[in-house]
Computed example of a mutant assay.
Amino acid sequence: MSEIKINAALVQGLAAAALGLPTGNEGKNFDPPPVTEPWAKWHNLPASTDVASLGVGGVDETVGVFQVDLNYPKNDGTGNILAAVQKLRDYFVAGRRLVYDGQCVHVDRVTRGNLRPVDGWQRISVSIYYSATTIRPEVSP
Rank of each mutant, 00 (worst) to 15 (best):
V59K: 13
L54N: 08
K41L: 13
D76E: 11
T49D: 11
T49S: 12
D60P: 11
K74Q: 01
V65F: 02
W42I: 07
G79V: 03
Q86F: 07
K74A: 00
L45Q: 06
A47E: 12
H43E: 12
W42C: 04
D69L: 09
V51I: 15
A40S: 14
G57Y: 02
Q67Y: 01
H43C: 11
A84G: 06
Q86D: 10
D50P: 08
F66V: 03
P38E: 08
V85T: 10
L82K: 02
L70V: 15
W39D: 06
G64M: 02
D76K: 09
N71P: 00
N75P: 05
N80C: 00
V51G: 15
V63R: 05
A83F: 06
A47G: 10
K41G: 12
V85I: 12
F66T: 01
A52S: 14
N75G: 07
N75H: 10
G57E: 03
V59F: 10
S53V: 09
T78D: 05
D50E: 15
V59D: 12
G64F: 01
K74T: 00
I81F: 04
D69N: 11
N71D: 00
N80D: 09
L70Q: 14
Q67L: 04
E61F: 06
G58D: 04
Q67S: 04
W42M: 07
D60G: 14
T49G: 12
A47K: 13
A83C: 06
V59R: 13
D69C: 10
N44Q: 11
L70W: 12
K74N: 00
P73T: 09
Q86N: 11
S53T: 10
H43G: 10
Q67R: 05
Q86K: 11
I81M: 05
G64V: 02
F66W: 03
Q67N: 03
D50M: 13
K41W: 13
V68F: 02
F66I: 02
N75E: 09
L54R: 09
V68K: 01
N75V: 06
A83I: 05
S48D: 14
P73H: 06
G77D: 04
E61D: 12
A84C: 08
G77E: 03
V68P: 01
N80H: 03
A40R: 06
W39H: 12
S53E: 07
W39G: 03
V51H: 15
W39V: 07
L54M: 10
A47D: 13
A47N: 13
G55W: 08
V85G: 05
K87Q: 04
L82Q: 01
A40I: 10
A40K: 07
A40W: 09
D76Q: 09
A83D: 12
G64W: 00
H43V: 15
A40Y: 09
F66Y: 03
N44L: 09
H43Y: 14
T49L: 10
N71M: 00
S48H: 14
P73F: 07
T62D: 07
D69K: 08
V56K: 14
A84Q: 09
P46M: 05
A52N: 14
